[in-house]
C-alpha cells in the first residue's frame, strides 16, 4: 500500500504517492526527483541530507514519510528565489566554499537556518551551527569565510527579492 503525501516543497504544493517505508530523503530524491539534497550515510552521521522542515534544519534521512504530511520543506533547490541566488550561494560560489559540492546543499541549509535566526553570528557561532555537517574537501576555512561574507552582503541589503 502506497502512502499519499501532501506537502509544501520550496513554497509549492507537492503531492506524492510513496512507499510508506521511505524517509523524507528518499521521497525528495526519488519521488519528487529533487536530487539537490544529498546523502552520505543515511544514519544521521554526515549532514549532507539537511533540509528545512517547517523552517527547522533537520536530517531528511531520519524523517519518516508518515510524519511529513502537510508540512513545509525547503531544499537547496528552494534557496534560489525568482531566479536570484541567495547571498550564501553567491558567496559560496565566489569564495571556494564548494569544492566537490557534495556537502554544499546541506551546509547551505544549515547556514541559512542560522542566518534566519541570527543575522550576525560570530565565527565561533557559525562553526558551532555548522558542526553537524561534514565536508571532506575544503577544510572549512573558505566555508566560514563565505558565510561571513554573506552576512556582509545581506547587511548591505543584498537580500533576495521575494
Amino acid at each position: 500500500m502506497k502512502l499519499r503525501l501532501n506537502l509544501s516543497v520550496n513554497g509549492e504544493p507537492a503531492e506524492a504517492l510513496v512507499d510508506p517505508d521511505k524517509t523524507l530523503l528518499e521521497v525528495l530524491r526519488e519521488d519528487l526527483q529533487l536530487t539537490g539534497t544529498k546523502h552520505g550515510c543515511e544514519l544521521g552521521e554526515c549532514g549532507a541530507c539537511a533540509v528545512l522542515l517547517d523552517d527547522q534544519p533537520v536530517l531528511s534521512c531520519l524523517v519518516v514519510s508518515h510524519e511529513c504530511e502537510g508540512r513545509s520543506v525547503v531544499t537547496v533547490e528552494g534557496l534560489t528565489v525568482d531566479g536570484r541566488l541567495h547571498p550564501l550561494q553567491e558567496c559560496f560560489a565566489d569564495l571556494g566554499a564548494s569544492q566537490c559540492g557534495y556537502c554544499t546543499p546541506g551546509i547551505l541549509i544549515a547556514a541559512k537556518a542560522l542566518l534566519d535566526r541570527d543575522p550576525n553570528p560570530s565565527r565561533d557561532l557559525i562553526r558551532e551551527a555548522l558542526s553537524g555537517n561534514l565536508c571532506r574537501c575544503t577544510g572549512y576555512q573558505q566555508i566560514l569565510d563565505a558565510v561571513q561574507a554573506s552576512i556582509v552582503r545581506l547587511g548591505e541589503g543584498g537580500e533576495q527579492k521575494k
Binding site: R29, T35, G36, K38, Q89, F92, A93, D94, G101, P105
Partner: peptide, 18 residues
C-alpha cells in the same frame, strides 16, 4: 568563481546517484 560553482551551490550538479 570556479566555472562549475553556480551548479554546485544550486544543487544542479548531477552526481552519479542523481
Amino acid at each position: 568563481r570556479r566555472v562549475d560553482g553556480r551548479a554546485k551551490v544550486t544543487g544542479q550538479t548531477k552526481f552519479a546517484d542523481d
